[in-house]
Design a protein around this nucleic acid. Structure first.
Length: 287
DNA sequence: AATCAAAGCAACCGCCATTGG
DNA sequence: TCCAATGGCGGTTGCTTTGAT
């Protein structure tokens, strides 16, 4: 493809479908072959980025919880601006998402926090003041990331308000349980989504997620930090993190076994909707 | 209703590391 | 060992949306 032919700018639903179709067939990787084999007028990098940051199954956008923010702050202080490494501890987040969230929300909060700290420490003893301030700065006010998230706050039950972004988000959602876990990162997360009503996908699918994650901690982590992490509730709803105490690798392959036992419900990895459903659905939801 | 500024985020760019011939 | 191709990452840009006036 000639350089001049390479398209830039936002991805269209049609391009997304082509990309997802190809990856579903051939798996992620071999990015170079995608433009050549699909006719997509995008460079290989762009394809990879679109997949890893947006279309990949199991991605959650917006709505960073206070726990996630705490973890990001902690990891940022330990690892620096290693967003890919930080994101690997947040299985549903991409490095781009974490980076954006840090730059747009948390930097400001940190400034507020530090400003408050300096004025507080001048007037009172530190100790509890720090916790008080932290919760003030991160859990309230602009800490309400719900309000700023265009994705998460969409009233999905009202299709007329849907934007394109929600379409790709739902592509990811629909593909959950299909994709093999990403191997280019340390993230080893498998989300098992059950659609309570799998026959219709135009309305909000009712889904329950359970995440099975193995988190490789940096050596700099001391046991207290691990306990801290264990106590964190990363995901909303019924999602849980399962920690592997043994050295055996979890089974991320085709047939899933959720730690804690099977409940006999149908799983999406057995019955994820065929792509044609996605295509027609997306076509209806034209922007 | 129109305009402007600020905020948010998807996507691009450039550099670096890795891999394979 | 060298070199080109490829993939990954962090920084940055610029478009879109939102809120204020």
């Amino acid at each position: 493809m000639a350089k001049a032919d390479i398209k830039k700018g936002p991805w269209t639903p049609e391009e997304d479908i082509i990309l997802v179709s190809y990856i579903q067939k051939h798996g992620p990787g071999k990015w170079r072959s995608i433009p050549a084999n699909t006719g997509l007028m995008r460079c290989s990098k762009s394809c990879r980025l679109r997949w890893t940051n947006y279309l990949r199954p199991g991605i959650k956008h917006g709505n960073f919880t206070p726990q996630e923010e705490e973890l990001i702050i902690h990891l940022q202080s330990v690892l620096g601006n290693k967003w890919a490494a930080i994101a690997s501890y947040l299985p549903q987040r991409t490095d781009n998402d974490v980076k954006n969230h840090w730059n747009t929300h948390m930097k400001k909060k940190m400034k507020r926090y530090q400003a408050a700290i300096s004025s507080y420490s001048a007037s009172s003893s530190a100790g509890n003041a720090c916790h008080e301030l932290a919760s003030t700065c991160f859990n309230t006010g602009s800490g309400n990331s719900n309000a700023s998230s265009t994705h998460s706050t969409l009233p999905i039950s009202n299709p007329s308000t849907l934007k394109y972004a929600s379409s790709t988000e739902n592509i990811s959602r629909l593909l959950e349980g299909w994709g093999r876990p990403s191997q280019d990162q340390d993230v080893r997360c498998q989300s098992i989504t059950r659609f309570a009503n799998s026959s219709t996908i135009s309305s909000t699918p009712v889904c329950f997620m359970e995440n099975q994650s193995k988190v490789d901690l940096p050596e700099s982590y001391h046991p207290a930090s691990i306990e801290e992490l264990k106590s964190l509730q990363f995901f909303e709803g019924s999602s849980r993190i399962y920690w592997e105490e043994s050295s055996s690798e979890p089974n991320f392959g085709g047939s899933q076994s959720v730690p804690g036992g099977s409940d006999g419900q149908n799983r999406l990895d057995d019955q994820h909707p065929p792509l044609t459903m996605l295509e027609s659905w997306l076509a209806d939801e034209d922007v």
